[in-house]
Amino acid sequence: MSEPSKIVKTIASIIFPFTMVFGIYVILHGHLTPGGGFQGGAIVASGIVLLLVAFGSAEIAKRVKESHLSILESIGALSFISLALLGLSTTFFYNFLAGSNFIFGRIPPFGSNPGDMNTGGVLPLMNISVGLKVIAGLSAIVLVLSLFARSRKQRKR
């Protein structure tokens, strides 16, 4: 297969920031609108994969190392588990921030309301940590697979 053309590269570099913004929006508004950590992380990872397909794996591997990605994934998993452990005074996965007047601590009125970012207790923090984990994990998988495919193709020649 030959190198992707200039049209593909231009369209990919135009679409990429919009994909990032939409994915981060889905992660951050996970407690208000449909979506959440996994869905938004999959959207952001698909933006990174679009760059990988359009520009080739060698160009991306110069800037992003998969060891850094696996460190990011471990940070996401550890913060998720420690957020769950922080509520251990009542139960595991207890929502200790809801109702307190600290960060994300407001309670919305019952029924349908326009929504407020400052609600939800630990749910937005958990969304962010799971989103970080999914972004790093899926990008690391596809990056390593593309590098493996490239090295295998070079060895065959």
Binding site: G30, H31, L32, T33, P34, G36, A84, F92, F93, N95, A98, G99, F104, G105, R106, I107, P108, P109, F110, G111, N113, G115, T119, G120, G121, V122, L123, M126, N127, V130
Partner: peptide, 22 residues
Amino acid sequence: QNETGSNNAVTSVVFDYRGFDT
């Protein structure tokens, strides 16, 4: 909405009531 403070009931089930599954 009263217990978890989140408008999206699906997220409150996924991360709070059924946190072990996540």
